[in-house]
Nucleic acid binder design. Structure first.
Lengths: 201, 201
DNA sequence: TGCGCGATATATCGATTCGATATATCGTGG
DNA sequence: CCACGATATATCGAATCGATATATCGCGCA
Protein backbone atom coordinates (compact mmCIF):
# COMPACT_ATOMS: atom_id res chain seq x y z
CA UNK A 1 0.00 0.00 0.00
CA UNK A 2 2.81 2.40 0.88
CA UNK A 3 4.56 1.53 -2.37
CA UNK A 4 1.48 2.23 -4.44
CA UNK A 5 0.73 5.44 -2.56
CA UNK A 6 4.32 6.63 -3.00
CA UNK A 7 3.58 6.83 -6.73
CA UNK A 8 0.37 8.82 -6.41
CA UNK A 9 -2.66 9.26 -4.13
CA UNK A 10 -5.16 6.45 -4.47
CA UNK A 11 -8.32 5.21 -2.75
CA UNK A 12 -8.86 1.85 -1.04
CA UNK A 13 -10.69 0.04 -3.80
CA UNK A 14 -7.98 0.86 -6.32
CA UNK A 15 -5.24 -0.26 -3.92
CA UNK A 16 -6.96 -3.60 -3.61
CA UNK A 17 -7.23 -4.00 -7.38
CA UNK A 18 -3.56 -3.14 -7.88
CA UNK A 19 -2.43 -5.46 -5.10
CA UNK A 20 -4.49 -8.29 -6.57
CA UNK A 21 -2.75 -7.72 -9.90
CA UNK A 22 0.66 -7.93 -8.28
CA UNK A 23 -0.04 -10.74 -5.86
CA UNK A 24 -2.48 -12.66 -8.03
CA UNK A 25 -6.01 -13.66 -7.04
CA UNK A 26 -4.30 -16.13 -4.79
CA UNK A 27 -2.36 -14.16 -2.10
CA UNK A 28 -4.64 -11.17 -2.70
CA UNK A 29 -5.83 -9.20 0.30
CA UNK A 30 -9.42 -8.85 1.43
CA UNK A 31 -11.47 -5.75 2.31
CA UNK A 32 -11.44 -6.94 5.88
CA UNK A 33 -7.66 -6.43 5.84
CA UNK A 34 -7.49 -3.43 3.57
CA UNK A 35 -9.66 -0.87 5.35
CA UNK A 36 -8.40 -1.59 8.89
CA UNK A 37 -4.84 -1.43 7.51
CA UNK A 38 -5.54 1.96 5.92
CA UNK A 39 -6.96 3.17 9.23
CA UNK A 40 -3.86 1.92 11.09
CA UNK A 41 -1.53 3.62 8.63
CA UNK A 42 -3.44 6.86 8.93
CA UNK A 43 -3.45 6.66 12.73
CA UNK A 44 0.32 6.11 12.72
CA UNK A 45 0.82 9.08 10.43
CA UNK A 46 2.23 7.17 7.46
CA UNK A 47 -0.59 8.28 5.17
CA UNK A 48 -3.20 11.01 5.20
CA UNK A 49 -6.56 11.56 3.61
CA UNK A 50 -6.59 13.99 0.70
CA UNK A 51 -9.58 16.21 0.06
CA UNK A 52 -8.32 17.33 -3.28
CA UNK A 53 -8.83 15.15 -6.33
CA UNK A 54 -5.64 14.45 -8.26
CA UNK A 55 -7.00 11.03 -9.06
CA UNK A 56 -7.25 9.09 -12.28
CA UNK A 57 -9.56 9.63 -15.22
CA UNK A 58 -12.52 11.67 -14.07
CA UNK A 59 -15.65 11.24 -16.17
CA UNK A 60 -17.12 14.38 -17.59
CA UNK A 61 -20.04 15.82 -15.71
CA UNK A 62 -18.22 15.63 -12.40
CA UNK A 63 -19.92 17.46 -9.63
CA UNK A 64 -17.67 20.21 -8.33
CA UNK A 65 -18.81 22.02 -5.21
CA UNK A 66 -18.93 25.71 -5.95
CA UNK A 67 -18.57 26.93 -2.39
CA UNK A 68 -21.09 28.85 -0.25
CA UNK A 69 -22.93 25.64 0.55
CA UNK A 70 -22.17 25.52 4.28
CA UNK A 71 -24.93 24.14 6.41
CA UNK A 72 -25.90 21.69 3.71
CA UNK A 73 -24.89 18.27 5.08
CA UNK A 74 -24.79 16.53 1.72
CA UNK A 75 -22.67 19.32 0.29
CA UNK A 76 -20.31 19.06 3.25
CA UNK A 77 -19.80 15.39 2.54
CA UNK A 78 -19.23 16.18 -1.10
CA UNK A 79 -16.57 18.65 -0.11
CA UNK A 80 -14.79 16.16 2.19
CA UNK A 81 -14.94 13.19 -0.14
CA UNK A 82 -14.27 13.00 -3.81
CA UNK A 83 -17.13 12.42 -6.21
CA UNK A 84 -16.28 11.22 -9.67
CA UNK A 85 -19.43 9.65 -10.93
CA UNK A 86 -18.89 6.70 -8.60
CA UNK A 87 -19.60 6.39 -4.95
CA UNK A 88 -17.88 8.86 -2.64
CA UNK A 89 -14.26 7.88 -2.34
CA UNK A 90 -11.60 8.50 0.26
CA UNK A 91 -8.19 8.99 -1.29
CA UNK A 92 -4.96 8.76 0.68
CA UNK A 93 -1.56 10.33 0.17
CA UNK A 94 1.73 9.07 1.62
CA UNK A 95 3.55 11.30 4.11
CA UNK A 96 7.31 11.76 4.58
CA UNK A 97 7.04 9.48 7.58
CA UNK A 98 5.30 6.91 5.39
CA UNK A 99 8.05 7.17 2.79
CA UNK A 100 10.64 6.48 5.49
CA UNK A 101 8.63 3.48 6.68
CA UNK A 102 8.34 2.20 3.11
CA UNK A 103 12.10 2.36 2.57
CA UNK A 104 12.62 0.60 5.89
CA UNK A 105 10.19 -2.22 5.06
CA UNK A 106 11.72 -2.65 1.62
CA UNK A 107 15.20 -3.00 3.08
CA UNK A 108 14.58 -5.24 6.07
CA UNK A 109 15.71 -8.80 5.43
CA UNK A 110 12.83 -10.41 7.37
CA UNK A 111 9.55 -11.49 5.85
CA UNK A 112 10.69 -14.24 3.53
CA UNK A 113 7.29 -15.68 2.60
CA UNK A 114 5.98 -15.73 -0.96
CA UNK A 115 3.73 -12.78 -0.39
CA UNK A 116 6.40 -10.49 0.97
CA UNK A 117 8.78 -11.54 -1.78
CA UNK A 118 6.30 -10.84 -4.60
CA UNK A 119 5.48 -7.49 -3.04
CA UNK A 120 9.09 -6.46 -2.55
CA UNK A 121 10.06 -7.56 -6.05
CA UNK A 122 7.29 -5.36 -7.43
CA UNK A 123 8.82 -2.37 -5.72
CA UNK A 124 12.52 -3.29 -5.73
CA UNK A 125 13.11 -0.69 -8.44
CA UNK A 126 13.15 1.79 -5.54
CA UNK A 127 16.10 -0.08 -4.02
CA UNK A 128 19.67 0.85 -4.90
CA UNK A 129 21.42 -1.75 -7.13
CA UNK A 130 23.44 -3.38 -4.31
CA UNK A 131 20.36 -3.60 -2.11
CA UNK A 132 18.43 -5.14 -4.97
CA UNK A 133 21.11 -7.74 -5.53
CA UNK A 134 21.23 -8.55 -1.80
CA UNK A 135 17.45 -8.97 -1.81
CA UNK A 136 17.61 -11.43 -4.72
CA UNK A 137 20.52 -13.33 -3.18
CA UNK A 138 18.58 -13.68 0.06
CA UNK A 139 15.72 -15.21 -1.87
CA UNK A 140 18.12 -17.52 -3.67
CA UNK A 141 19.57 -18.74 -0.38
CA UNK A 142 16.09 -19.43 0.96
CA UNK A 143 15.06 -21.42 -2.11
CA UNK A 144 18.32 -23.38 -2.13
CA UNK A 145 17.75 -24.40 1.45
CA UNK A 146 14.13 -25.28 0.79
CA UNK A 147 15.08 -27.38 -2.21
CA UNK A 148 17.63 -29.26 -0.14
CA UNK A 149 14.94 -30.17 2.39
CA UNK A 150 12.50 -31.17 -0.35
CA UNK A 151 15.03 -33.28 -2.28
CA UNK A 152 15.90 -35.63 0.59
CA UNK A 153 13.71 -38.75 0.38
CA UNK A 154 10.80 -39.12 2.76
CA UNK A 155 11.47 -40.87 6.03
CA UNK A 156 8.25 -42.82 6.14
CA UNK A 157 6.08 -44.60 3.60
CA UNK A 158 3.70 -42.35 1.69
CA UNK A 159 0.99 -43.07 -0.86
CA UNK A 160 1.57 -42.24 -4.51
CA UNK A 161 -0.60 -39.08 -4.48
CA UNK A 162 1.34 -37.50 -1.64
CA UNK A 163 4.61 -38.60 -3.22
CA UNK A 164 3.60 -36.96 -6.48
CA UNK A 165 2.67 -33.81 -4.57
CA UNK A 166 6.07 -33.69 -2.88
CA UNK A 167 7.91 -34.34 -6.13
CA UNK A 168 5.95 -31.62 -7.88
CA UNK A 169 6.72 -29.21 -5.08
CA UNK A 170 10.45 -29.90 -5.41
CA UNK A 171 10.25 -29.30 -9.16
CA UNK A 172 8.40 -26.03 -8.54
CA UNK A 173 11.08 -24.87 -6.14
CA UNK A 174 13.74 -25.73 -8.73
CA UNK A 175 11.72 -23.72 -11.25
CA UNK A 176 11.61 -20.76 -8.87
CA UNK A 177 15.33 -21.07 -8.26
CA UNK A 178 16.12 -21.05 -11.99
CA UNK A 179 14.05 -17.91 -12.33
CA UNK A 180 15.86 -16.14 -9.49
CA UNK A 181 19.20 -17.13 -10.98
CA UNK A 182 18.10 -15.53 -14.22
CA UNK A 183 17.06 -12.34 -12.44
CA UNK A 184 20.38 -12.24 -10.61
CA UNK A 185 22.32 -12.74 -13.82
CA UNK A 186 20.42 -9.90 -15.49
CA UNK A 187 21.00 -7.71 -12.48
CA UNK A 188 24.75 -8.36 -12.42
CA UNK A 189 25.06 -7.79 -16.17
CA UNK A 190 23.27 -4.48 -15.92
CA UNK A 191 25.28 -3.28 -12.93
CA UNK A 192 28.50 -4.22 -14.69
CA UNK A 193 27.33 -2.35 -17.76
CA UNK A 194 26.54 0.71 -15.68
CA UNK A 195 29.93 0.67 -14.05
CA UNK A 196 31.75 0.27 -17.38
CA UNK A 197 29.79 3.12 -18.87
CA UNK A 198 30.58 5.25 -15.85
CA UNK A 199 34.31 4.43 -16.11
CA UNK A 200 34.49 5.15 -19.82
CA UNK A 201 32.61 8.43 -19.47
CA UNK B 1 -6.20 -33.60 11.20
CA UNK B 2 -9.26 -35.79 10.71
CA UNK B 3 -7.49 -37.59 7.88
CA UNK B 4 -4.43 -38.30 9.96
CA UNK B 5 -6.49 -39.35 12.97
CA UNK B 6 -8.57 -41.68 10.81
CA UNK B 7 -5.41 -43.74 10.33
CA UNK B 8 -4.50 -43.96 14.00
CA UNK B 9 -4.67 -41.98 17.24
CA UNK B 10 -2.07 -39.24 17.43
CA UNK B 11 -1.19 -36.28 19.62
CA UNK B 12 -1.05 -32.62 18.64
CA UNK B 13 2.65 -32.23 18.12
CA UNK B 14 2.77 -35.22 15.77
CA UNK B 15 -0.21 -33.89 13.79
CA UNK B 16 1.65 -30.63 13.25
CA UNK B 17 4.78 -32.43 12.07
CA UNK B 18 2.81 -34.58 9.63
CA UNK B 19 0.85 -31.63 8.30
CA UNK B 20 4.06 -29.68 7.77
CA UNK B 21 5.40 -32.61 5.76
CA UNK B 22 2.32 -32.65 3.54
CA UNK B 23 1.85 -28.91 3.22
CA UNK B 24 5.50 -27.94 3.28
CA UNK B 25 7.07 -25.44 5.69
CA UNK B 26 5.23 -22.85 3.68
CA UNK B 27 1.45 -23.42 4.17
CA UNK B 28 2.18 -25.22 7.43
CA UNK B 29 -0.07 -24.57 10.41
CA UNK B 30 0.98 -22.99 13.69
CA UNK B 31 0.43 -24.13 17.27
CA UNK B 32 -1.91 -21.22 17.68
CA UNK B 33 -4.17 -22.86 15.10
CA UNK B 34 -3.54 -26.47 16.00
CA UNK B 35 -4.52 -26.62 19.65
CA UNK B 36 -7.67 -24.48 19.39
CA UNK B 37 -8.68 -26.56 16.37
CA UNK B 38 -8.22 -29.77 18.33
CA UNK B 39 -10.32 -28.31 21.15
CA UNK B 40 -13.05 -27.34 18.65
CA UNK B 41 -13.08 -30.78 17.10
CA UNK B 42 -13.30 -32.40 20.51
CA UNK B 43 -16.12 -30.06 21.57
CA UNK B 44 -18.04 -30.90 18.39
CA UNK B 45 -17.59 -34.60 19.01
CA UNK B 46 -15.49 -35.36 15.93
CA UNK B 47 -12.54 -36.55 17.99
CA UNK B 48 -12.01 -37.71 21.56
CA UNK B 49 -9.10 -37.95 23.92
CA UNK B 50 -7.70 -41.43 24.43
CA UNK B 51 -6.31 -42.48 27.78
CA UNK B 52 -4.85 -45.67 26.43
CA UNK B 53 -1.51 -45.59 24.67
CA UNK B 54 -1.53 -47.23 21.27
CA UNK B 55 0.98 -44.67 20.14
CA UNK B 56 4.27 -44.93 18.32
CA UNK B 57 7.58 -46.25 19.56
CA UNK B 58 7.63 -46.16 23.33
CA UNK B 59 11.11 -45.97 24.88
CA UNK B 60 11.93 -48.62 27.42
CA UNK B 61 11.61 -47.58 31.00
CA UNK B 62 8.12 -46.21 30.50
CA UNK B 63 6.27 -45.52 33.67
CA UNK B 64 3.13 -47.62 33.81
CA UNK B 65 0.73 -46.86 36.63
CA UNK B 66 0.19 -50.10 38.52
CA UNK B 67 -3.21 -49.22 39.91
CA UNK B 68 -4.20 -48.64 43.55
CA UNK B 69 -2.79 -45.13 43.38
CA UNK B 70 -6.03 -43.18 43.79
CA UNK B 71 -5.74 -40.09 45.86
CA UNK B 72 -2.35 -39.31 44.43
CA UNK B 73 -2.79 -36.28 42.17
CA UNK B 74 0.36 -36.84 40.13
CA UNK B 75 -0.61 -40.45 39.55
CA UNK B 76 -4.06 -39.35 38.42
CA UNK B 77 -2.49 -37.08 35.83
CA UNK B 78 -0.26 -39.93 34.74
CA UNK B 79 -3.32 -42.10 34.30
CA UNK B 80 -5.13 -39.46 32.23
CA UNK B 81 -2.19 -38.50 30.04
CA UNK B 82 0.31 -40.69 28.35
CA UNK B 83 3.90 -40.65 29.48
CA UNK B 84 6.50 -42.04 27.14
CA UNK B 85 9.72 -40.55 28.29
CA UNK B 86 8.68 -37.20 26.84
CA UNK B 87 6.38 -34.63 28.28
CA UNK B 88 2.84 -35.76 29.08
CA UNK B 89 0.93 -36.04 25.82
CA UNK B 90 -2.74 -35.92 24.97
CA UNK B 91 -3.63 -38.32 22.18
CA UNK B 92 -6.85 -38.07 20.19
CA UNK B 93 -8.90 -40.67 18.36
CA UNK B 94 -11.43 -39.98 15.58
CA UNK B 95 -15.08 -40.81 16.27
CA UNK B 96 -17.70 -42.11 13.83
CA UNK B 97 -19.06 -38.58 13.64
CA UNK B 98 -15.58 -37.35 12.81
CA UNK B 99 -15.23 -39.97 10.09
CA UNK B 100 -18.49 -38.74 8.54
CA UNK B 101 -17.26 -35.16 8.71
CA UNK B 102 -13.96 -36.15 7.10
CA UNK B 103 -15.75 -37.84 4.17
CA UNK B 104 -17.96 -34.78 3.79
CA UNK B 105 -15.03 -32.36 3.77
CA UNK B 106 -13.13 -34.54 1.30
CA UNK B 107 -16.08 -34.60 -1.08
CA UNK B 108 -17.24 -30.99 -0.97
CA UNK B 109 -16.22 -29.07 -4.10
CA UNK B 110 -15.51 -25.81 -2.24
CA UNK B 111 -12.14 -24.77 -0.84
CA UNK B 112 -10.13 -24.41 -4.01
CA UNK B 113 -7.04 -22.77 -2.56
CA UNK B 114 -3.59 -24.35 -2.71
CA UNK B 115 -3.72 -25.49 0.86
CA UNK B 116 -7.03 -27.30 0.59
CA UNK B 117 -5.93 -28.90 -2.66
CA UNK B 118 -2.66 -30.22 -1.26
CA UNK B 119 -4.48 -31.55 1.78
CA UNK B 120 -7.23 -33.23 -0.22
CA UNK B 121 -4.77 -34.75 -2.66
CA UNK B 122 -2.90 -36.27 0.26
CA UNK B 123 -6.07 -38.03 1.35
CA UNK B 124 -7.82 -38.56 -1.96
CA UNK B 125 -6.98 -42.27 -1.75
CA UNK B 126 -10.01 -42.45 0.54
CA UNK B 127 -12.21 -41.14 -2.28
CA UNK B 128 -13.88 -43.55 -4.73
CA UNK B 129 -12.32 -43.46 -8.24
CA UNK B 130 -15.05 -41.29 -9.83
CA UNK B 131 -14.89 -38.84 -6.93
CA UNK B 132 -11.13 -38.70 -7.25
CA UNK B 133 -11.34 -37.97 -10.95
CA UNK B 134 -13.96 -35.27 -10.35
CA UNK B 135 -11.68 -33.71 -7.74
CA UNK B 136 -8.76 -33.60 -10.17
CA UNK B 137 -10.93 -32.25 -13.00
CA UNK B 138 -12.15 -29.47 -10.73
CA UNK B 139 -8.58 -28.50 -10.05
CA UNK B 140 -7.80 -28.63 -13.75
CA UNK B 141 -10.69 -26.29 -14.52
CA UNK B 142 -9.52 -23.83 -11.88
CA UNK B 143 -5.96 -23.79 -13.20
CA UNK B 144 -7.13 -23.43 -16.79
CA UNK B 145 -9.18 -20.41 -15.85
CA UNK B 146 -6.34 -18.93 -13.82
CA UNK B 147 -3.91 -19.41 -16.68
CA UNK B 148 -6.30 -17.66 -19.05
CA UNK B 149 -6.37 -14.62 -16.76
CA UNK B 150 -2.61 -14.65 -16.34
CA UNK B 151 -1.88 -15.03 -20.05
CA UNK B 152 -3.75 -11.92 -21.17
CA UNK B 153 -1.34 -8.98 -21.40
CA UNK B 154 -1.36 -6.37 -18.67
CA UNK B 155 -3.63 -3.39 -19.16
CA UNK B 156 -1.24 -0.80 -17.82
CA UNK B 157 2.47 -0.20 -18.01
CA UNK B 158 4.52 -2.19 -15.49
CA UNK B 159 8.21 -2.24 -14.66
CA UNK B 160 10.36 -5.16 -15.73
CA UNK B 161 10.52 -6.77 -12.28
CA UNK B 162 6.75 -6.96 -11.95
CA UNK B 163 6.47 -8.15 -15.54
CA UNK B 164 8.97 -10.90 -14.85
CA UNK B 165 7.00 -11.85 -11.74
CA UNK B 166 3.77 -12.11 -13.71
CA UNK B 167 5.40 -14.10 -16.49
CA UNK B 168 6.93 -16.49 -13.99
CA UNK B 169 3.57 -16.92 -12.31
CA UNK B 170 1.95 -17.84 -15.62
CA UNK B 171 4.70 -20.39 -16.29
CA UNK B 172 4.20 -21.85 -12.83
CA UNK B 173 0.48 -22.22 -13.44
CA UNK B 174 1.22 -23.96 -16.74
CA UNK B 175 3.60 -26.24 -14.85
CA UNK B 176 0.88 -27.05 -12.32
CA UNK B 177 -1.58 -27.70 -15.12
CA UNK B 178 0.79 -30.12 -16.86
CA UNK B 179 1.17 -31.97 -13.59
CA UNK B 180 -2.59 -32.26 -13.04
CA UNK B 181 -3.01 -33.49 -16.62
CA UNK B 182 -0.48 -36.18 -15.87
CA UNK B 183 -2.30 -37.20 -12.69
CA UNK B 184 -5.60 -37.31 -14.57
CA UNK B 185 -4.10 -39.45 -17.35
CA UNK B 186 -2.72 -41.88 -14.79
CA UNK B 187 -6.04 -41.98 -13.03
CA UNK B 188 -7.99 -42.70 -16.21
CA UNK B 189 -5.52 -45.39 -17.29
CA UNK B 190 -5.83 -47.11 -13.94
CA UNK B 191 -9.60 -46.95 -13.85
CA UNK B 192 -9.78 -48.35 -17.38
CA UNK B 193 -7.42 -51.14 -16.36
CA UNK B 194 -9.56 -51.94 -13.34
CA UNK B 195 -12.71 -52.10 -15.43
CA UNK B 196 -11.10 -54.35 -18.04
CA UNK B 197 -9.83 -56.65 -15.34
CA UNK B 198 -13.24 -56.72 -13.76
CA UNK B 199 -14.90 -57.49 -17.12
CA UNK B 200 -12.47 -60.25 -17.98
CA UNK B 201 -12.75 -61.87 -14.55
C1' DT C 1 -39.41 7.10 -17.99
C1' DG C 2 -38.24 4.11 -14.64
C1' DC C 3 -36.24 0.03 -12.90
C1' DG C 4 -33.13 -3.72 -12.07
C1' DC C 5 -28.41 -5.21 -12.43
C1' DG C 6 -23.48 -5.20 -12.13
C1' DA C 7 -19.46 -2.46 -11.07
C1' DT C 8 -17.64 0.68 -7.89
C1' DA C 9 -16.80 1.88 -3.10
C1' DT C 10 -16.45 1.91 2.15
C1' DA C 11 -17.07 -0.41 6.33
C1' DT C 12 -17.64 -3.87 10.01
C1' DC C 13 -18.50 -8.43 12.28
C1' DG C 14 -17.28 -12.96 14.15
C1' DA C 15 -14.34 -16.71 13.48
C1' DT C 16 -9.94 -18.16 12.50
C1' DT C 17 -4.95 -17.81 12.03
C1' DC C 18 -0.53 -16.34 13.03
C1' DG C 19 3.78 -15.43 15.56
C1' DA C 20 5.48 -14.89 20.00
C1' DT C 21 5.78 -16.41 24.38
C1' DA C 22 5.36 -19.32 28.65
C1' DT C 23 5.91 -23.58 30.70
C1' DA C 24 7.53 -28.25 31.44
C1' DT C 25 9.92 -32.80 30.57
C1' DC C 26 13.40 -35.69 28.72
C1' DG C 27 17.88 -37.20 26.50
C1' DT C 28 22.52 -35.98 25.33
C1' DG C 29 26.98 -34.29 25.80
C1' DG C 30 30.47 -31.77 28.04
C1' DC D 1 25.61 -31.64 37.35
C1' DC D 2 23.81 -28.71 34.32
C1' DA D 3 23.11 -26.36 29.79
C1' DC D 4 20.93 -27.18 25.62
C1' DG D 5 17.86 -28.81 22.11
C1' DA D 6 13.92 -31.68 21.00
C1' DT D 7 9.47 -32.82 22.49
C1' DA D 8 4.98 -31.23 24.04
C1' DT D 9 0.80 -28.33 25.43
C1' DA D 10 -1.23 -23.96 25.86
C1' DT D 11 -2.56 -19.07 25.45
C1' DC D 12 -2.34 -14.08 24.13
C1' DG D 13 -2.91 -10.04 21.18
C1' DA D 14 -2.89 -8.56 16.64
C1' DA D 15 -3.95 -9.40 11.96
C1' DT D 16 -6.57 -11.74 8.38
C1' DC D 17 -10.37 -13.71 6.15
C1' DG D 18 -14.99 -14.40 4.16
C1' DA D 19 -19.47 -12.79 4.63
C1' DT D 20 -22.43 -9.22 4.91
C1' DA D 21 -24.46 -4.45 4.91
C1' DT D 22 -24.92 -0.27 2.69
C1' DA D 23 -24.80 3.11 -0.97
C1' DT D 24 -23.97 5.25 -5.62
C1' DC D 25 -23.44 5.24 -10.49
C1' DG D 26 -23.95 3.83 -15.43
C1' DC D 27 -26.05 0.85 -18.62
C1' DG D 28 -29.53 -1.59 -20.95
C1' DC D 29 -34.08 -2.59 -21.72
C1' DA D 30 -39.03 -2.77 -21.41
Amino acid sequence: MLGLLSEQPRHGYELKKRLSEILGPLWGISFGSLYPALARLERSGAIEEVDDDDLGPVPSGEFVPTGSLKGDLAAARRRRRVRTGRRTRKAYRITDQGRALFRELLNEPAGDDERAFALKLSFCRYLDPPGRLAFLERRRALLTQRLLAERKPATRAIDRYTRSLLEHRARSTQHDLDWIDELIAQERAEQLGDRTEGASA
